[in-house]
Design a protein around this nucleic acid. Structure first.
Lengths: 226, 226
DNA sequence: GGTGGTATTCTAACATACCAGTTGTGCCGG
DNA sequence: CCGGCACAACTGGTATGTTAGAATACCACC
């Protein structure tokens, strides 16, 4: 006797506060270093301090804020180490997913992936803002079609932290073209069922993040904790 | 001007409650399905509901409990899917770590690892209860010496969820011997700098978990959510 | 003018009271 | 005896008051 339908989750005040703050932090509307006071936030949302506390706790779990008892709660900055950690795990998972995909690739799957690639190409010139989503979808498709659905959430979790930082990056335009070309090559490698090539491209693809990270680190040192 | 020394974290009541409950849950003193009432727990620890709420919130983040508003908070059971997810990520990370170790392996590192292996052999007969720690240390050493320190925490996180389940496993004795032999082979593969062999053994090594998981699933179906 | 102690005023942590659902139980009517 | 409804005893969510630690500003004193 499960409560399968009973899981209709109530939307609580704390949820609302959490989601709002989460958005403000990840969008950098609240930049790193910003002090957040329970009382102040509570007044801003016109709720009591309790749900705010709850929200702070969750944000703290996500390492988005640092709660310093009796002092203050501040928005955490980026950490090269944390980013590197995410990148590392994502690389490992992505490599495994790509390999499994290599083993089980079929023309039908290739066609589905090609459809996404076509959209990417169109987006490059017409809707640059859509490229990021298509990029994400591309990697998801490889996991899904490749028989690694478990990799999807793991990668998404890693991406989230990295994307947060990459939102500061300028020059996404030329970057996007490079990424698109990587995607093309990776798709080809899958078609060829060439493990070595696929792995090499995946490694190269993710390594491109490093320069972006370095660039952001230099242009926005003040947002970093180290 | 950092607050390097300012990070001295105070030990709060919520911490204590959280740690206590965490231990009770992971040790299965509070088996899956146990109902936890904020009020009841608060009385047990002689604190107010507030810190208990905080603790519940953290446990919920770790997916150890399920908070159902207006109904109850219950200790979550195992989920084959969640375990598989952890196992998958761990495999991916471990494979990457082993490969990097392969590239940078030296006789000196091999010697350090051998010391751990010797301890494992001794533990098998004299101190079986120590084997688990040595096993953990073995994998950590490979990451550390292999130039993948980042893999350590990622693996530890995955292990935690799986270990929780494996604590129900009987027959750890014969299992341990098999694991030890895997370790020996892996160490040899590293010495030989044989990527293929190392990867194959790592895959095999982790796949051994599956039978343990199946076994626990059959003998303790009531602890599973699905 | 510089230094030490103190008072004020922040903060988050904690305790308590209240509210709004949910659930289980038992009474009452059929 | 059985079904349905009402009530009582829960639950977690929210609001607010209280406590204690930490930073700061200020003032007296050197």
């Amino acid at each position: 006797m499960q409560d399968l339908p009973g899981m209709i989750e109530r939307r609580t005040t704390a949820d609302a506060v959490f989601e709002h703050l989460h958005k403000e932090i990840t969008s950098l509307a609240l930049p790193p270093g910003t002090k957040l006071s329970e009382l102040e936030v509570a007044r801003r949302f016109e709720v009591s301090r309790q749900p705010v506390r709850e929200a702070f706790s969750r944000l703290s779990n996500l390492e988005l804020v640092l709660v310093r008892p009796q002092k203050a709660t501040v928005v955490r900055g980026f950490s090269r180490e944390r980013v590197a950690q995410s990148r590392f795990v994502r690389l490992a998972v992505e490599l495994e997913a790509v390999q499994q995909a290599c083993n089980s690739w079929t023309p039908g799957k290739a066609k589905t992936l090609q459809k996404n690639l076509d959209e990417q190409r169109d987006a490059l010139t017409s809707h640059p803002e859509r490229f990021h989503d298509l990029d994400s979808q591309f990697h998801t498709l490889i996991c899904e079609l490749g028989g690694c659905p478990r990799a999807i959430s793991a990668i998404a979790e890693c991406r989230q932290k990295i994307d947060h930082l990459c939102s500061l990056s300028l020059a996404r335009k030329s970057e996007a073209e490079t990424l698109y070309e990587d995607h093309l090559e990776l798709a080809q490698a899958l078609k060829d069922k060439s493990h070595e090539k696929a792995i090499a491209i995946a490694r190269l693809h993710l390594s491109r993040l490093d320069s972006v990270i370095d660039q952001v680190h230099q242009s926005h040192t003040e947002y970093f904790e180290e």
